[in-house]
Write a protein that binds this DNA or RNA. Sequence first.
DNA 1: TGTTCAAAAGTGGTCAGACCACTTTTATAG
DNA 2: CTATAAAAGTGGTCTGACCACTTTTGAACA
Lengths: 215, 215
Amino acid sequence: MGVDKPASKMFIQIVRELREIIQNEKIPPGGKIPSERVLAERLNVGRSSIREALRSLELLGLIETRRGGGTFVADFRNHQLVEVLSTFILQEEKTLRNVHETRKILERDAIRIVAEDEKLRNLPVWESLLTNLIIEGRIEREDLMREIIITSNNRLVLKIWILLKQYGKEPYNGLSTEEEQPFLQTFISEIMLGHTEEAIQAFELWTMLLHKERE
Amino acid sequence: MGVDKPASKMFIQIVRELREIIQNEKIPPGGKIPSERVLAERLNVGRSSIREALRSLELLGLIETRRGGGTFVADFRNHQLVEVLSTFILQEEKTLRNVHETRKILERDAIRIVAEDEKLRNLPVWESLLTNLIIEGRIEREDLMREIIITSNNRLVLKIWILLKQYGKEPYNGLSTEEEQPFLQTFISEIMLGHTEEAIQAFELWTMLLHKERE
DNA sequence: TGTTCAAAAGTGGTCAGACCACTTTTATAG
DNA sequence: CTATAAAAGTGGTCTGACCACTTTTGAACA
């Protein structure tokens, strides 16, 4: 029942634990979460750690807090997402593929939106990303996709994406390698040119490469 | 320079302050943020409050933390930190539109998957749906989309879709009307023929029609 | 018995201070 | 000038203490 202390990221662990608690005890949207003090004791951690985790979830809009009242699962669409996702993930490992696929769906669409909108695809971000790529030869994959999704301007998608990312333990997680550079370069360039389909194709190739590498 | 105490959501205030600090002092991606203790003193708040704000940003992937080293602006180049923060903080309430958009993203992709897979698009379901449409002239929209999504074979997407559907209070919810029939007919036919882009186009037209009707 | 309402308990919000483990800087010995 | 050990700095965590507010409780009253 206790929480391990993996040296760092304890509050991330607690976020996980919270998800399990919400799921196991079937706390519905709008339902009350155990108090901070109770959680601290149950998980054998300090109250401050619990709070760091709760505040994170609150910024994401997954829980609501009422001073003097308690903490509640958000009475809103998003938290249920958490429930759905945790239920899903905790079931079987084969569903991991679904998580990846779903994430790719969201990513692909964000690319479309950005590439097809003149204003969005002409933001200076892409230019500098490209420059950086050429100079340094590397880019954090997650960061690139996050940037695209943020630009695509759908908060809900961003939230879902972040959640999926946390669960996904994506096979690709490091920096881009040299082999990938041409794909990445093409990818970003096509976006900037507004060549939607080409951009997506480059994205697919890139993704494929990433999966192949790590197997 | 101090932080107000608006009764609640202090850590949100701190997130705001952090944004300003990063902006005003032009801390670049990868650059170092003042230490927690320094921030606490500068903003006249306790260190724990600072930490709650920082942990939130960390969960969002906007900052990085190195034990013993310090806290840094996330090292992805030229990210739109300011925009992200305002997106989350300003709580723009165009949420409902986001829900619809997200749902459409999932639907569109399901259509692609079905149309591009020979086995899936040749299932007898579509034939009988088409027949029904012609004979009875009506189809439950939700049923059609559900069928497509189920066929696309991603349970996670299905769950998310159902969820979004519940919250969406979609403007279209009834049976199809006569005007829509040609679009629907085209839509299903194109899927069966494996004409992905045409099917999606028909889908878009259909969707557009539905929205127009109810406004 | 039923209602009212004030006290008590519970809860989130915040702060201060204390360690720990780790990294960076500084100062010293060679 | 360099190597290395000490010191300072930093994030990570816990504890305990108040505060302001809400919920619950229980006793007095009608």
